[in-house]
Simulated assay, not measured.
Amino acid sequence: MVREVRKAIGDDMELMVDSNHAYNLREAIKLSKSIEDYDIGWFEPPVSPEFYNRYAELRNATIIPIAGGECEYLRCGFHPLLRTNAVDIAQPDIAACSGLTEVKKISVLTSTYGKEIVPHSWGTYIAISAAMHFISNLDNVPGRMFNSNFWMEHDRTDNELRDKVTIPDFEVKNGEIKVSDKPGLGVGIDEDALKRFCK
């Protein structure tokens, strides 16, 4: 599947693999080795989230950057991932890890360890818009030859709660998102649709 997707999208588009911690370490290493030639942007989360050492072992066994952290809470939960060199990319879920203030602290910790951060954003446009505002306030590491590309997930699976209840105020164009300048997160709520989901 990875080979066919790479063939379909060409070499100029980023391709990431998300396994939702479906593998043990042996399986994750085997899969990583079999897809390294397809220029994978990152492999997220490959093994169960509590196995920090296995993340680190996988990271040392493949050239594919390893991402994880969507199941972690608070900066204290991210510290072991970073301290053990288990991930290249930290993926805090803003809605689950205690909000924008805490995820900003996680981003400082991540930067201190020289790692990247890409927020996990799944659910309604409230979570997606929070991630958009968060990444728009990240700083580039000084001294780099190239500025970082700040990434975020934009969930496009079927989700009536997201698509009927929350109304976003942003546009995705050529792979980039313009941040809303409306108050708060810039998300509207369709109260009639919300009532239908409350029944």
Rank of each mutant, 00 (worst) to 15 (best):
M1W: 13
M1H: 11
R3P: 00
E4C: 06
E4M: 14
R6T: 06
A8G: 06
A8I: 03
I9Y: 11
G10D: 07
D11Q: 15
D12W: 14
M13P: 05
L15T: 09
S19W: 08
N20G: 07
N20Q: 04
H21W: 11
A22W: 08
Y23G: 14
N24Y: 06
R26L: 14
E27W: 02
A28M: 09
K30Y: 07
L31N: 09
L31I: 05
S32Q: 09
E36N: 11
Y38T: 05
G41W: 05
G41H: 05
W42R: 01
F43R: 02
E44H: 01
E44P: 09
P45A: 14
P45H: 11
V47P: 03
E50D: 10
E50S: 06
E50H: 12
F51K: 05
F51Q: 01
F51L: 10
Y52C: 03
Y52M: 04
R54C: 04
Y55I: 06
A56L: 00
N60G: 11
A61D: 12
I63E: 07
I63Q: 08
I63A: 13
I64P: 00
I64R: 03
P65W: 10
G69N: 09
E70P: 01
C71E: 05
L74S: 15
F78G: 04
H79K: 15
L81I: 02
N85Q: 05
A86W: 02
V87L: 00
I89C: 07
I89K: 00
Q91C: 04
Q91N: 00
P92K: 02
D93F: 02
A95K: 07
A95F: 13
A95W: 02
A96R: 12
C97V: 06
C97F: 03
C97H: 01
S98W: 04
S98I: 01
S98C: 13
T101G: 00
E102Y: 12
E102A: 10
V103H: 00
K105W: 00
S107P: 05
V108S: 15
L109M: 12
T110P: 01
T112Q: 04
G114I: 03
E116T: 05
I117N: 01
I117F: 07
V118G: 00
H120N: 06
S121V: 12
W122Q: 08
W122H: 08
G123N: 10
T124H: 02
Y125N: 15
A127L: 04
I135N: 05
I135L: 11
I135M: 04
L138I: 09
D139H: 14
V141H: 07
V141I: 15
P142F: 12
P142Q: 10
G143T: 03
R144S: 10
F146Y: 15
N147P: 10
F150H: 04
F150Y: 12
W151T: 02
E153H: 04
H154A: 10
H154R: 12
H154P: 02
R156G: 08
T157Q: 13
T157D: 12
D158E: 14
D158N: 13
R162L: 09
R162F: 11
K164C: 11
K164R: 15
T166D: 07
I167R: 10
P168I: 07
D169H: 15
F170E: 08
K173G: 12
N174I: 12
I177A: 08
V179M: 15
V179F: 15
G184C: 13
G184Q: 12
G186R: 13
I189F: 09
A193T: 02
L194G: 02
K195S: 15
K195I: 04
C198D: 14
C198E: 14
